[in-house]
Design a protein around this nucleic acid. Sequence first.
RNA 1: GCGGGUGUGGCGGAAUGGUAGACGCCGGGGACUUAAAAUCCCCUGAGCUUUGCUCGUGCGGGUUCGAGUCCCGCCACCCGCACCA
Length: 836
Amino acid sequence: MTDRRFNPAAADAKWQAAWEEAGCFVADSASEKPKSYVLEMFPYPSGRIHIGHVRNYTMGDVLARYKKMRGHEVLHPMGWDAFGMPAENAAMEKGVHPGGWTHDNIAHMKAQLKRIGFALDWTREFATCDASYYGHEQALFIALYEAGLVYRKQAEVNWDPVDMTVLANEQVIDGKGWRSGAEVEKRKLNQWFLKITDFAEELLDGLDSLDGWPDKVKLMQANWIGKSKGLQFAFDLSDGDKVEVYSTRPDTIFGASFVAVAADHPIASRVAEGDDAAQAFIEKCKAGGTTAAALETAEKLGFDTKLTARHPFTGEALPVYIANFVLMDYGTGAVMGVPGHDQRDFEFATKYDLPIPRVVAPNADDADKPFAGEAEPGEGVIVNSQFLDGLDVEAAKREVIARIEAAGAGEGKTVWRLRDWGVSRQRYWGTPIPFIHCDTCGVVPVPEEQLPVELPEDVEFDTPGNPLDRHPTWKHVDCPGCGGKAVRETDTLDTFVNSSWYFLRFASQPADKPFDRDEVAKWLPVEQYIGGIEHAILHLLYARFWTRALERIGMLDFAEPFASLFTQGMVTHETYQAGDGSWLSPGEVKKDGADYMRIEDGSPVTVGRVVKMSKSKKNVIDPDAIITQYGADAVRWFMLSDSPPERDLPWSEAGIEGCSRFVHRLWRLTTQRDAAASGEDLDLARKTHRTIAAVAEDIEALSFNKAVARIYELTGAVEKAQPSASREEAIETLLLLASPMMPHLAEEAWAEAGGEGLIANAAWPAVDPALLVEDEVTIAVQVKGKLRDTLTAAKGSSKEELEALALASDKVQRSLDGAAIRKVIVVPDRLVNIVT
RNA sequence: GCGGGUGUGGCGGAAUGGUAGACGCCGGGGACUUAAAAUCCCCUGAGCUUUGCUCGUGCGGGUUCGAGUCCCGCCACCCGCACCA
């Protein structure tokens, strides 16, 4: 017994040192134990750990510690997604070198992570900006090139005509450059691409094997890949040429009232040659950003080329437009416009006063039904369509495809929405693309013995644009082929490439190659991957692609990197605004009864919506400050309590106070033990064993909030119980169950009670199945579906017994009030419903 | 605009189609204390004619003996949209 209070600051440091000393969390790939690879998405070293990271890594940590308790050898690594634009922005704004800035940030954030007591194997740490990482990435890139999965082509970028630089989408605000304010233009550059479209079918089919992934993510990826079956066919044009169009709705072919081509379609270019107005329209289409959202929300604009296209069945002459909403990248870059059954076409036709025929109707009788101000893209019966009339949509599609194919005018075709992955970035702080341009030999890979191609240190950020391109010496090299003068590629790789294989490098990091295939096979696929839903498509699809590509070229033996995926919600917080509308940080505000006021001058504060923490709204909580105030365990407990992990977690002062109280409450309980207590408390023992089973189930399902609630319940039961051997067992169990969540308190209390070794190395408590059996159940009794009574019955009572018990109830009889019973529904061990 | 998701007390949430609100927070009352903090105990969805009854899971319909849960139609908010990470 002790009256010593739990001191988080001292305990945190003490046990973190003890774990490190014992090497508790260093993964041994030679271990005979079953292996578990638990991985959270590694952070971008922005400067400070934010509370969202804490939530993400706490979840992974609980799972990693739990798996270790279940006898697994656990790999739980951490590293840094260290290339990217913020470092270059810092260089421009503060005059610091991106590398120095990044390494300072990493040092700070690593210290922050260590304070939270995560069970991480720091011996495997690396940053993607280390040449010892990106050099191997260059080797992999060359390997993919040699396998024919890398190529170059012209592609559009956002061009800032004032700063003379390429802008990222986030740097384009309302179609203007973020620094210059100039109207952004689309410009074509020769860029590097990865052939992800070669894998479209397998990336789609592979989703079926990902049982551990959320359906919503699989659905999003499937839609992104976007396999569609349709018809590609040619219209004859009035000038004697043809235009190939692609449509996923060939059944609506009789509803076509125009043909539209993309602004960069060859037909558009040809029309523009002798037509200044057409040229001006095409130029206009080049203004603005390149994002899909910008294109699709922009007003639908068209230019009438005066050409006409001959309808293959009716012979009708349809006008041909150049339109800003047609994408050159998808299908053939030209479409047949069916306004009645496609919303974009509807808007376009309305604007340019084109006919809107109906060719699909709810019923055959509705052939002339007017449209209610919008297109009807759904199912129905084909009408006004000659030989298609009366068919359903699918049958009509087949019929049209068959007829067009028979006429030799086109063919049924599968088209993918997925586009090849453009990986060129005209920036310094990224992996140099390891190629050399030679006038004689063309594009030549850097020889393996010359890797890594390292970034030069001496670069200037005083002007926009790529410092690599304007560096005085770096790019000038001799051609590896002919030995003549040549230049390096100055584009660097998209940072998504860095995060497409880092999980392999964590598992195996030899000096002379990217990874060792056999070592990787010991750990991969990742058993549980945890990160934000915002990565549902791009990062996860790219990582899947990269893994499959490496499998195809024989470097890996598996196709899918992540067996299970979990996407966690954001951490949110109330917002506060002063009278003048300016945002206030939580530290500037205090609660005054039911209202809030500004500490500075007592002026009233408006409490705004609970939103994602962001610097601009100042509703940010600093993990360091709260760890100092409450200790790591209270913060970890808060991250796991209440909100289901896939949902948003609202941060609150009251909530963390409550968590802190519970840490101390558990401490008191464990220090009020009576080792000499004897005797059995069957109810408590049952509760204990039910809790062990339930908490294990909850942790495995990552339902941490439910596990937390069960630990609270058992704590409450222990507090009410009289001393007994069962109570001693319950307390020890509580410590073990809580140890993945509050490891510091658990160690301290374990040591206090004379527990053997570190609780971090302890085994998960065993469940006694005999104690899980229930012998009595509570039965709900309803009359006409409404609850009227509850009664207790022996588990497994027969339907007849339960019915008799229910009818014997006074409350039920009163409720029945003599009415005739029509039917009695009995659900064994649960409910009786009497219907009159 | 397109794709995906979420919606339950004052708040976070729990609930294999079967007792809606477990557990936590806030709030109220009490105990202990000279007093406070800490701690402990009790109450806490709304309403009513209070042995009990009625209403209640974003809104409107539907299926069912029975719907938070399944179906149809809406609304609001959140995530993604290929150069933010």
